[in-house]
Nucleic acid binder design. Sequence first.
RNA 1: GCGGGCAUAGUGUAGUCUGGUUAUCACAUAGGCUUGCCAAGCCUAUAACCCGGGUUCAAAUCCCGGUGCCCGCACCA
Length: 501
Amino acid sequence: MKSDELFALLRRRGVLWPSAEIYGGAQGLYDYGPLGVALKRRLEEAWAAWFVGLSHDYHVIEPAEILPEAVVRASGHLENFTDPEVTCESCHSAFRAETILEKVRPEGVDGLSPAQIGEIVSANHLKCPTCGSLALSVPRPFNLMFGMDFGVTGRERAYLRPETAQGSYLSFARMWDVGRRALPLGIAVIGKAYRNEIAPRQVLFRMRSFTQAELQIFFDPAGFPVPFDRVREETLPMLRVDRRERGEETPESVRAGALVESGGLPEFYVYHLVHTLRFFRDVLGYPADRLRLFEKSDAERAFYNRLQFDVEVRLDSLGGYKELGAVHYRGDYDLSRHSQGSGKDLSVHPTGKEPLLPHVLELTFGVDRNVWGLADLHLSREGERTLWKLPSYLAPVAVGVFPLIGKEHAPYALALTDELAALGITAQYDDGSSIGKRYARMDEVGTPFCVTVDGETLADGPAKDSVTLRHRDSRTQERVPRSELAARMAPSLRPPRPSRA
RNA sequence: GCGGGCAUAGUGUAGUCUGGUUAUCACAUAGGCUUGCCAAGCCUAUAACCCGGGUUCAAAUCCCGGUGCCCGCACCA
């Protein structure tokens, strides 16, 4: 489905719409409606069940969304999140200063002030790559963070967090103290991050306020033990730098074991690549042939990452592979920067070992992007029928409950709806229009089950107190006693957990 | 930011070039009748010209500005 068509469908069903719509919308901001919230929460729960479930020592926290200036100075965001831009006065093209200065200053522009960059531009008579004019402006700094006054004096500055990860680093020392004081220690955050994007585009793909789910795993750089034999034979769709340089777009299937033996990747890293891939493929149900693990080159990687593979998924609505998650090996960059910035020694002393500064493996997941991904990959039109084949445990509504004949069966169906809801199964009652339309409505929002109360349910006989249970994808029906209904549905409504060694 | 295109009920659209009736049709939504296990039928109702300014007796239609969306370029720590 095309992006427009998909968005129209989601908007009509109350999944998602532009923020401040009555004022014409605000670029890069979107609101979730009732179904969208339900889907997003289930997605977040499924993420947490899977990734936080990787170890007993992984925990979810909820840090503040506002970061004092000292934090973003130490993290490097104040400096590096700024992208100096040079514009051509003649043709109005805009370029990153780094691109313009590439030839005369291959070491990059980090640490240079806008004025210094301007001097280099004019001293070297650099021309606009588009029109050849010499009229290049002094760069204007553009920071992607939203800044704000903090406190009453107006002298203090603070910023909306540009990534949720910082809260985990700031809380590491506290988490060490309140926990088992053992590595690896995992800290997960699910929450909003904010970036003042230059050009928000493609609906949920570049937003100014978006939800990330990130797990930071702190581990001893001398060893991160993982049960690698359990994943050794798994094959991964790899697109590594060497193949990319030959112009390849499609991944090749590589054994996890081979990535370690001859691919130069550490076991712990490949182990987490496997679990990340499994999440996308087995938990979210993305088709395996649409996934690839895209290795970022030295030049493309964020400066603090030693290894970076993006999980990319091919989406028809956006015309290609899109990054929906990533696995970053950040080394000790974050803890060492915050040690320096705060003056607190963040190294730890595990029992029986020398003090050490942990390294960080970061597993990131774009929640909104995957809401879109779930729509793109599972929502389709089959003739007249619109069907959203969401995994059952992600569906906003688990079961629709209908009276076959409105007047006669409504009380029973309403009571059954309440009973299922009380058992924690999201049930929605519907007696509108015809039975066929009710099924169709449920198909469109991905509801895996529908239950219909009919004459047999109420009549004395062998089928008394049984209802028909209809399955979304096959449209098949079976007769199920009311007492067994919840137990029949419950297993498929729980998100999978990883198998642990 | 640059260039090009687009903007009419909840959704998809006709009408715009060539200004002039009560703005077209379908689906969706709500209510009623009928039916009773896969979007059936009939009746009724709700509902729109992106915003602001200009030209004109008269603007959905022409002009200017703004906003938003789409495509390409650039950007995406």
